[in-house]
């Protein structure tokens, strides 16, 4: 589990400061308590491009896949 969390932690290191705050914040305080499908959604969010993640989190675009919706709601509530 440590290696797994560490991997996610490194992938939360992004080119945009805003994403550092949002993603790392969620990993540190919300991820472990989240249901497995939300954890999976987080993984797939991390594999996306910075500019696209920011657009999603800011609500400028809507996700193509429905599984991101509950995660985005969580992330938006945290900001």
């Amino acid at each position: 589990m440590t290696a797994e969390l560490n991997r996610l932690r490194w992938r939360c290191q992004r080119g945009m400061l805003e994403l550092d705050h949002i993603l790392r914040g969620f990993l540190d305080t919300g991820y472990l308590a989240a249901p497995p499908e939300t954890q999976r959604a987080f993984e797939s969010l991390l594999s996306m491009e910075d500019a696209d993640i920011l657009d999603l989190v800011m609500g400028r675009t809507t996700p193509v896949s429905g599984e991101l919706v509950p995660l985005l709601a969580l992330l938006q509530r945290r900001i």
Partner: peptide
Amino acid sequence: SKVFPTRSHTVS
């Protein structure tokens, strides 16, 4: 690169 290249700070 320590992160994926397209996640470099230039993206900001």
